[in-house]
Amino acid sequence: MKMVATLVMLWLVMAVAPETPVGRALWRGFVEMPAQFLNRITRGHVLLTALLVATVVGVVWLIGEEAVRLLSMASPEALSWLVMVDAASLLDVAMGVVLVATSVRIGAAWARVGAAWRRVVRRPRAVRTRPVRTERAADNDDEEPRRAMAA
């Protein structure tokens, strides 16, 4: 009964004096913050909750009385698993976005390198000739090499 009386008095303060600092603080704590929290609930949250309730009901139906003890011991760990899976999936999505963005940039870089390479390959090259020897070696080691002369 005391709890009900306290809540009625808090509601009365919010209704009678909403512009006072206490009234604004109560309004923020009892109306705005819960409304913001409830506004963030999505279909996925509702589906996950329904799935958990169905799992608990199925386990209780199969095992009976022992299921209550089992579920009460496992619930903290199960909730931590759910949080871990949720955080891991968010990290996976973030890494996927980073990898896709990186691959797009790398693909563009490779395209630029390939275009530059094709320009280099297609460029006409100067024809190189072999250098012509203008001197012949002497047959005799004692003689100096002579210049080749046309006959």
Rank of each mutant, 00 (worst) to 15 (best):
K2D: 14
V4I: 14
A5P: 02
V8Q: 13
M9G: 04
W11D: 12
V13Y: 02
V13M: 10
A15N: 11
A17H: 06
P21N: 00
V22Q: 11
V22Y: 08
V22D: 02
G23C: 00
G23F: 00
R24A: 05
A25V: 06
L26V: 03
W27G: 03
R28V: 04
R28Q: 08
G29R: 10
G29L: 15
F30V: 00
V31G: 01
M33Y: 06
M33F: 06
P34N: 00
P34K: 00
P34T: 01
Q36D: 10
Q36C: 03
F37A: 09
R43W: 15
R43Y: 14
R43P: 03
H45A: 02
L47T: 10
L47F: 12
L48V: 07
T49L: 10
A50G: 03
L51M: 09
A54Q: 06
V56F: 06
V57T: 12
G58I: 03
W61V: 05
G64R: 00
E65W: 12
L70I: 04
L71I: 07
L71V: 00
S72R: 14
A74K: 10
E77S: 10
A78F: 06
L82D: 01
V83E: 15
V85S: 12
V85T: 05
D86K: 13
D86Q: 09
A87M: 09
S89E: 13
V93E: 15
M95I: 12
M95F: 08
G96T: 08
V97G: 06
V100Y: 05
A101R: 06
T102F: 15
R105A: 08
G107I: 03
A111Y: 10
R112F: 08
R112L: 11
G114P: 01
A115M: 11
A116T: 08
R119Q: 04
R119Y: 01
R119W: 03
R119T: 01
V121S: 04
V121Y: 05
R122C: 01
R122Y: 11
R123P: 04
R125G: 07
R125D: 01
A126T: 11
A126W: 05
P131E: 13
P131C: 12
E135V: 14
E135I: 14
E135P: 02
A138Q: 00
D139A: 11
R146V: 13
A151Q: 09
A151I: 06
A151C: 04
